[in-house]
Write a protein that binds this DNA or RNA. Sequence first.
DNA 1: ATTCCACAGGAAACAGTGGTCC
DNA 2: GGACCACTGTTTCCTGTGGAAT
Length: 403
Amino acid sequence: MTEDLVDKLLNDAAIGKSLFKDRKIVNLGHKPDQILYRDNELATITQILIPITKQSKPSNLLIYGKPGTGKTLVTDHILKKIEKNIIKNQQNYKVKLVFLNAKNETTLYGLLVRLGNELDQENELPKTGLSISQIFTKIIDTITSKSLNVIFIIDEIDYLAKLVQKTGKDILYNLTRANERLDGKGSLTLIGISNDLTFKENLDPRVISSLGEEEIIFSNYSTEQLRNILEDRIKLAFNPQSVEESALNLCAAMAGREHGDARRAIDLLRVAGELAERQQSEKVTEEHVREASQKIEENKEATVLKSYPLHEKLLILAVMKASGASTGEIYSIYKELCKIVRQKELTQRRTTQMLSEIELSGIITGRLVHQGIHGRTKKYKLTISPEMVKNSFKDDLTLEDII
DNA sequence: ATTCCACAGGAAACAGTGGTCC
DNA sequence: GGACCACTGTTTCCTGTGGAAT
């Protein structure tokens, strides 16, 4: 009996036909090789890196571009080709690619340890306990003893530069000058990838001169280019005629408005396709694209809200309960909330810092107000609906009593 | 012209964690 | 087992701020 029901449901589902031919093509992170639209950049970077195929050290390289301009994808693509080429033609010449995203590491130490572990997978470096210079020495030793030619690619290197600035430890300087310590046994080439054109301003001038030997900029995709990219993906991912022309144009235009982000364009297309499919629509329409855009935005907010630690959540609730209030008022509400959930309250200094951090995410906005003799304060407001906050926090048992 | 409010936000110190090395 | 290291999250202390009130 139950079996019959399952069969029936499956049959019914099969009637509502899928719009997708190959769904993974529009997943983020899926990278069809042939669709780069970056011929100029491809050629330039390859030229810069060619020396390493001739067994000499290429220049260090900095690559800039806004998110979703394909800089990481293109770099990765070229380097893997070079590596393959070398492995095929020059067996005794050892090249090692290490690709790291600085954002995945919260500390300089962690970043160096990851690099070290990639170079020497048998002897894992300790996650803590050693000094940074000891780790650095171990890395240099590994490179010289194995005569490795290392190409170290750091994605989001601006983030690393901030860490360097904060701690005062100049890892970047040491990395760019590592070749002087290598004595010709092996080499280290640094490739930095960054979203931020201005990050160099905070660096030591000596680092700038050696790291920025070569620079290349990935310009934003134009709406027309985005349209081409989407068209290619649609051909591969969707059944014929299942995406309306106008929907495609809107997708490209929306992503084009946000500094030509191809990743966002593709994501938008995927979500629109899924929405259309769920509504059993024959085609993806403009309306689906608009809906998708809104949904992506909401998901982003919900994820951010859920990921906050308890005291940040309490502060957001305090802002919600007193929209437009000053930090002083917010702090007293926060203290009351702490009492209800039986948590020890943090100091006002700490909470103002937290409020600034939350403000950066865009969940709340603050406005500095001078009130004459009533002093200076910052007034905070929620930028999202209270329902959104309540929905996102409702799974948190500690907050049960105050929502 | 001076005072004074109610904070903002920088700097430094501290506690605690989780580790290495000798 | 004690000296040392990196790091996070926090507290403590402090200086600076613009305009209403005096």
